[in-house]
Write a protein that binds this DNA or RNA. Structure first.
Lengths: 242, 242
DNA sequence: CAGTGGTCTAGACCACAGC
DNA sequence: CTGTGGTCTAGACCACTGA
């Protein structure tokens, strides 16, 4: 129930493009026309259109207009900060979460470095496998500051941690840095995932910050090689050109 | 020599943050103050600040202000559409490009599918290895529409193709989709890269579009497992919340 | 309460595309 | 030339922060 006009415009067109009502290549009404239709200013129209452009829905050309891009709904980024649960739901895939560990412990040497805290700081440690089509293909290991998240349980970690944090604790997650690399599989990988003969896994390290910039979560998402995919949409910043 | 005021503001602060003059955690002047200082409107100030926020330089909090984020200059995205040459230059690394193939040929079955053209369309095929510290760790295979790029040579591909396209041919590259996955190494990988006993490589497939939305380039950037890294900075879109 | 960022208005001038 | 998107102005009101 929020009433940002430019978000409304964004959603209107995102919906139309996703559903195919607006075909790829077709031209949007001009900013001037949209302003009249929505009874708003052109600057406000532009905010909505820029949001569409950022998310790969449309492409704007000076002097010509805005055009719908080809964008397959499922195989698309939406950027990294979407949880596994949201993603599988979007793909309509059958999935299952296996919770192996939900404990409160001390950070220890490695985690204290990642979270930039002292080694005896209390953190929640959560280990979960993500099962799709009967195979455990992702191993998620999460560490969350206990000072930020006082309580966790197997019921919560079995669902979505983020949903709990945002809806119950009213925490505001703001931004994250993710680092993707390929590393040798560990004993935990062999134990908690179905990786067969593979010697390596894809590791996505996540550093998640709250609105006050607190680094409150470090996570490792370990993927089986053959099931890993990451899609990125990027615009050439002709605006900048350093 | 372009005079967008908000880009000037962006560059000013990006520079100050990169050089360390503005330390992480420090507070920027308020939008009102910046508007006065630059003698521009607050809306224009905001465009510059939003650009800084998008690129991970700062973080804005309603009611409080804008704050400098920790952002190591080298290990940062700048998003995908930066060529290998630009990247190594940014890191100050010693690098070398080995050109194996620069030929004009027919697209063939696989490439015609990737570029959505017919199999007998003429395309340039470029195969290059990227050598860093004496090891060939990246294999770049590029296919470019000959109708868009009429001429190529070993001299050009040995430097930067993008620089040639933008500066000589005045082509405007607009956006790209990249797909990262891990795949079995091929005979070409073993021949043109130093991958030793590895059985897999990281493959980054790129689909590059011009300003008129033409898909004019398909590329495969094949990386040795231990030298691959991809960094992503993402904001949680609290604006949207579908 | 004053200060901050978020949104929006009603204009203006510019650069570019295409006829 | 008209129509398009890109930039910018000089205001306004709102929601949030913190003293």
């Amino acid at each position: 129930m929020m009433n940002n006009i430019f978000v409304t415009l964004y959603k209107d067109f995102a919906e139309k493009i996703d559903s195919g009502i607006l075909a790829p290549g077709s031209k949007l009404p001009s900013e001037h026309d949209l302003a009249q239709h929505y009874e708003i200013t052109r600057e406000t129209v532009r905010k909505g259109l820029n949001l569409l452009a950022q998310n790969g829905y449309i492409h704007k050309v000076k002097g010509k207009g805005s055009f719908v891009l080809e964008r397959d709904r499922y195989n698309f980024p939406v950027s990294g900060l979407v949880s596994y649960k949201e993603m599988t739901e979007r793909m309509g895939k059958l999935s299952n979460t296996l919770v192996y560990v939900t404990e409160c412990t001390h950070a220890g040497e490695f985690i204290s470095k990642q979270l930039q805290i002292s080694a005896d700081t209390k953190v929640w440690r959560v280990v979960r496998a993500r099962e799709i089509d009967g195979e455990r293909i992702i191993l998620d290991i999460d560490f969350l500051l206990a000072s930020v998240v006082p309580h966790l349980s197997k019921e919560i970690t079995g669902q979505s941690i983020y949903e709990y944090l945002e809806k119950e604790l009213n925490l505001k997650i703001s931004y994250a840095k993710k680092v993707i690399s390929v590393e040798r599989a560990t004993g935990m990988d062999y134990e908690y995932m179905d990786i067969g003969e593979d010697t390596h896994v894809v590791v996505v390290r996540g550093y998640v910050h709250l609105e006050d910039t607190t680094l409150f979560q470090y996570s490792e998402s370990r993927h089986r090689l053959d099931k890993f995919q990451f899609v990125d949409f990027a615009r050439r910043e002709n605006t900048l050109s350093f």
